[in-house]
């Protein structure tokens, strides 16, 4: 494998600090005078992955492409370094994003139906500001409520490649059959 390509790919991933698609990498390399096939770039990424085995780095594929991450083993020390306290997400917020993720596109009303509680405007705004959800359109019913879907950023932030990587939604029938018997 051409070391130049491997190192160039690494440099781009390091420099960007965000996920990059194979095609984006190829185009940039081409513009800088290095011609490489997509397969070669993929190979370079595999080689880098291998190279990082005994280091603090790892290659991660997410929805928006490939990116370099620091292995989770080091998260506790980095949190101290950056004094990073990622804002705690409330249960309500997690339920809301879960419903959007699994049932998208959904309106606010759909979310409220499932949760049995009115959805706080702040929750939706919080998710929009995080860029975890976006409005994909408006439902053609009275009031034309906004339809929400999750974004690539949401998948990226959770280390996921696609919605299929989400944990399975429990089956309706078998789940909590005991509740039924208890209530009835």
């Amino acid at each position: 494998m051409n070391n130049l390509i491997i190192n160039s790919v690494e440099a781009l991933l390091f420099g960007s600090g965000r996920p990059m698609r194979l095609s984006e990498i190829r185009n940039i390399l081409e513009n800088s005078g290095t011609t490489a096939e997509l397969s070669e770039i993929k190979q370079a990424i595999n080689d880098l992955e291998e190279r990082y085995t005994n280091t603090s780095l790892e290659m991660q594929e997410v929805a928006s492409g490939y990116r370099l991450q620091i292995k989770q083993d080091h998260s506790s020390s980095l949190s101290i370094l950056w004094n990073e306290k990622s804002p705690r997400m409330s249960k309500a917020l997690m339920e809301t994003i879960a419903i959007i993720a699994y049932k998208q596109p959904v309106t606010r009303g759909d979310i409220e139906d499932i949760r049995g509680v009115s959805v706080n405007t702040r929750s939706i705004r919080n998710l929009l500001e995080r860029n975890w959800i976006k409005i994909s359109g408006y439902k053609e019913v009275p009031g034309r409520p906004a339809l929400y879907v999750t974004t690539k950023d949401f998948l990226d932030d959770l280390n996921l490649r696609s919605l299929n990587d989400l944990p399975d939604l429990p089956e309706l029938e078998n789940q909590e059959g005991d509740i039924l018997s208890q209530v009835v």
Binding site: Q69, I70, Q72, E84, S86, Y102, L172, I179
Partner: peptide, 29 residues
């Protein structure tokens, strides 16, 4: 409704335990 809610509640707990950027892992650059 309770059953349906239970499904999403369960899965939302799973989601909240998924590794999350800047909380559980960090991007190298």
């Amino acid at each position: 409704r309770l059953q349906d809610y239970q499904r999403y509640k369960t899965v939302s707990e799973k989601l909240s335990f998924l590794p999350r950027v800047d909380r559980d892992f960090f991007i190298a650059s």
